[in-house]
């Protein structure tokens, strides 16, 4: 393979493009320049294409050897930019994609020290449900992450508009409240079924591997709590027309639970899901 096409080079270029997307996004926000923000989004899209290539080639090369937690973080980064790209297409606003690129860059940063400890996926965990379990959950987590950011911005902007405090010039081009709420709606309507699929796959998987679907694993408990909150949000959005602050607050809570589940359980607790570091 040509050195320029190697996964390492692609990864480096991806990171450079995500960094460029973040910097251009910030500059475009401060300078209130639409072309600069569009350039940021374009950099993120090219970065995403390169990351797809890097992950496809690198992942393929390392699957036989197993995956490290760093590789999982990189996969999550990919799903994040995928979700950002989807929202960019759907909302016609660059902000979610630029934010996704910056978050992906951060995930790459966290993944660097955790790339070396490649651990083989135990044979017991190799099942057809595995890819679906990880894929569905990661995409829903990416959507939750973006909806969390949109929710946080919504709460800030809504508070300022209601309190008549005026808006600083640099956030004047942030998405309107309606768009921020729609990000939450998409993350709920698309993300909740995905999260449910991921959970159900996990349960089947546990049944096949451990002989029982509910094992009392900390990850299971926290994920179930997340699922319940997500279900409440899903129900109220669709059935009761929740809009604005309530879904934004609930999405923030869901994200916090997901972050605790991802960081605390995977890194600091004994769980079926901490196999990657053992």
């Amino acid at each position: 393979m040509h050195p320029l096409l190697s996964p390492e080079t692609s990864t480096l270029l991806t990171l450079a493009l995500y960094a460029a997307a973040g910097l251009c996004g910030l500059a475009g926000m401060i300078a209130r320049s639409r072309p600069v923000r569009s350039a940021a989004a374009a950099a993120a899209v090219v970065g995403f294409a390169l990351q797809t290539f890097a992950l496809a080639t690198g992942f393929h090369a390392s699957t036989s050897g197993g995956l490290s937690i760093g590789a999982y973080l990189q996969m999550l980064a990919w799903f994040l930019v995928l979700a950002g790209t989807m929202l960019r297409i759907f909302m016609k606003h660059n902000a979610p994609l630029i934010f996704a690129a910056v978050a992906a860059l951060m995930l790459y940063g966290f993944s660097a020290p955790a790339l070396e400890a490649v651990v083989k996926v135990p044979e017991t965990l190799k099942a057809p449900f595995y890819a679906l379990h990880i894929g569905a959950l990661f995409l829903s987590l990416a959507l939750i992450g973006l909806a969390f950011a949109a929710g946080a911005v919504f709460l800030y902007l809504d508070g300022r508009i209601k309190a008549k405090l005026g808006l600083p010039a640099f956030i004047a081009d942030m998405p309107a409240l309606n768009i921020l709420d729609r990000i939450n709606a998409v993350a709920t309507v698309v993300g909740f079924p995905l999260y449910s699929v991921g959970m159900v796959c996990g349960l089947f998987y546990a049944g096949a591997v451990y002989g029982r679907t509910v094992t009392g694993d900390p990850k299971e408990i926290i994920s179930f709590a997340t699922w319940v909150l997500y279900a409440v949000l899903f129900h109220n959005r669709l059935a009761r027309g929740w809009y604005g602050r309530k879904p934004a607050r609930l999405m923030v809570l869901i994200f916090i639970l997901c972050a605790v589940s991802f960081v605390v359980v995977n890194l600091f607790m004994t769980s079926h899901h901490s196999f990657a570091r053992t």
Binding site: R32, L157, I161, L167, A169, A172, P175, A176, L177, N178, I179
Partner: peptide, 22 residues
């Protein structure tokens, strides 16, 4: 940003509406 924000009451109202509805 010398020309970026609304400086009439009616225009300010429309700008605020855009912040809410996009």
């Amino acid at each position: 940003a010398v020309a970026s924000s609304a400086v009439s009451i009616s225009y300010a109202a429309v700008e605020l509406a855009k912040r809410i509805f996009g």
